[in-house]
Every structure is written in C-alpha cells, then in structure tokens.
Write a protein that binds this DNA or RNA. Structure first.
Length: 324
DNA sequence: CGGATTTGACCCGCGC
DNA sequence: GCGCGGGTCAAATCCG
C-alpha cells in the first residue's frame, strides 16, 4: 500500500514486461498489444470498435447492464481460448491502481462486489447513496445502508507515451474525479463516458517512474459507437495524415492509433508475458513534431510487417496488478 | 446558460 | 478494530 511506487516500477517502459512485480493474472486488467486482428475482436467485445463499417451497432455495442456486461466479459474470456486472459479475483494482491477489490468478478464471485459504481441510465439514481457524496446527516444514516455490491467490469489498460494525459479515443469523457496517487507526484484522473447509457469508465494516470508514460485503464464496455470525433474531431488535419497510415494498420492498431490525437509515441500494449517481445511501439503521428515539421512514424514492431493473421493473440495479457 | 471540470468529503475494502 | 488508500459524489467553479 505504501510501497506501491516501488512495485509500480515495472510500469516504466520495458520493465512492464517483467512479471516479477506485476504478476500476470493477478488482476483482470489487460494491456493491449497492437497489431493483430484478434485484438479487434477483443476490442469489439469491449465495445471498442473503430470499424467504420460497423453496421450492426446493437450487436457490437450491446448496452449491457453491469452484470450482463460482466457475463459477457466472462464469455469473452472463455471464447478467446488462446488468449492468456485470466479473469480472476486475486484476493491476496492489490495495488493502488488495481486493487483486488476493483476487480470485476466477471468470472464467478460476485460476492465481493459493491453496488454498481457505474451509474448507467438504468441504474437507480439512489445508487450512490451509500458511497461517496455528502448527503445531509439525516440522510446519511439512511444511505449508509449498503446497496447492492458494486460491480466491477472487465478492465484493460494500455500504456502510452504521451505528453498529454487524456488521449482522444473517439469517445467523450467526463471527468468525475481526481485523486493523488500515493508516492506519485501525478494525480490519477477518473473519467466516465458521457453517453448516459454507457457505463464505461477510465482512469488516467501518469507513471511516477516515467513521467512520459500515461497509463490508461478502461473499465466496462461501450454500448454505442464512438462519438464522431468530439470537439472538432480527429478527422482533421491530423487524421488526414494519420488516416492514411491507419488504413495500413490492423483494426487493433487503429484502435491504438486512430483515437490518439497526439501521442508522442505509444508504447503500447504491454505484454507481461515473460516471452513477450511486444514492447511494441505503435506507429505514431508525432503531431507536435509535425508542427515543427518533423513528423514521422515509428514502426510498430521491430520488424515492419504488421501481423495480419493469427498468432499474436498473446498480445493481450493480463496486466498483473500493481501491488500496493 | 449549459456542460465540463475542480475539489473536498465521504464510503468502502483491505491489510495490519 | 483501525488506518490507509482507492473510488466516487456533488457542490462550486470554470468555460465556451
């Protein structure tokens, strides 16, 4: 708890791949690797679908209640059999960022859940009575009564090297909280999808070890399409260039890439598997540099060819939880 | 003026 | 049982 910082060291660049501090499977958070079609499937399952041709939104973005979503996630875990997804509730380990209590009991154990923290439109407004907020004293006595256990949904995370904390990902987010991270000078920000029916949340924090590294953790599943590039959008001078490049990337890569406005570079998908060599750097459009006239891409993989077929499913691995 | 952000307080789970 | 820390709420404030 207090030494989370040391244990979070792995968050910095290559150390991510070490499992010594973030034991794989200790939490149901996954770092994404980039360049595989299978990833897109998984992304889709999470509601992260950047396929412009998605003609069946309802199928791609089922608006699930947390429980249904959790079930869905467990299905996902089961169906992607070759994926090293490990949906587990580690009761022994937790971290400042990913405490075991955060885990979605997507596989079984709903016992540890609290009331659904995500307040979808279908959630009863009184949902939060029991947590947070500052109800009047007289009300507090009532609201302190525990509601339904909180449902934590499946989460996945990726690491981005970026100067900006909040990367555009095609969705609109509303910030609902910020917390100082122990042993870190950088606060953690909490965002919620602005879509009233969408319960997806995300956390953004900057690694204290490597301030250039932004850790984004998504929780839940979007039940809608991306907002058509909010606030002026990605489709602009930036994407006109990026889009061309994106066309050459697998959907997953597009995911990683497309939504980001100006990542300096994406050290993405961190693979925690010991064998992982996926400390891949996604091609980037160094927009900032572009302004200076030196935009360029970095090849996503040490070896240029982008995977187009099976074989890299292991790219998505459980992000070990960070010990606290 | 409406929506987004900030920020302090509160709740809850976990470890000791 | 207590303290710590993560997560969330919601009033206040900011901003377009």
């Amino acid at each position: 708890m207090d030494n989370n910082n040391e244990k979070r060291d792995p968050l910095t660049t290559t150390e991510f791949t070490t499992q010594s501090t973030w034991p794989p499977g200790s939490d149901s958070v996954y770092f994404f690797s980039t360049t595989h079609d299978r990833d897109s499937n998984i992304l889709s399952d999470f509601g992260w679908n950047f396929n412009p041709d998605a003609s069946k939104p309802d199928e791609v973005f089922p608006c699930l209640d947390p429980i249904a979503a959790a079930d869905d996630m467990s299905d996902l875990a089961g169906n992607t059999s070759s994926s090293p997804l490990v949906l587990e509730n580690s009761s022994s380990s937790s971290s400042p960022a990913f405490r075991s209590s955060d885990l979605a009991p997507v596989v079984g154990s709903a016992s540890t859940n609290q009331s659904a923290s995500t307040s979808s439109s279908e959630d009863p407004p009184e949902r939060s009575a029991g947590s947070g907020g500052k109800p009047p004293p007289e009300i507090q006595s009532k609201v302190k009564k525990k509601g339904p256990k909180r449902i934590r949904q499946q989460r996945f995370a990726f690491v981005t090297k970026s100067e900006v904390d909040h990367l555009e990902d095609g969705y609109r987010w509303r910030k609902y909280g910020q917390k100082a991270v122990k042993n870190s000078p950088f606060p953690r920000s909490y965002y919620r999808c602005t879509n009233t029916k969408c319960t997806v949340k995300k956390r953004v924090e900057r690694s204290s070890e490597d301030p250039t590294t932004v850790i984004t953790t998504y929780e839940g599943q979007h039940c809608h399409h991306t907002v058509a590039f909010p606030r002026g959008g990605v489709i602009g001078h930036e994407s006109s260039f990026a889009g061309h490049q994106l066309a050459q990337l697998s959907p997953a890569s597009q995911f990683m890439y497309y939504p980001t406005i100006r990542p300096r570079e994406i050290t993405s998908p961190i693979n925690l598997t010991p064998t992982a060599s996926h400390q891949a750097v996604v091609p980037r459009h160094d927009d900032d540099q572009a302004a200076g006239g030196s935009s360029h891409f970095i090849d996503p993989q040490p070896t240029p060819p982008l995977p187009t077929d099976e074989g890299l499913l292991g790219d998505i691995v459980p992000l070990g939880m960070r010990n606290r």
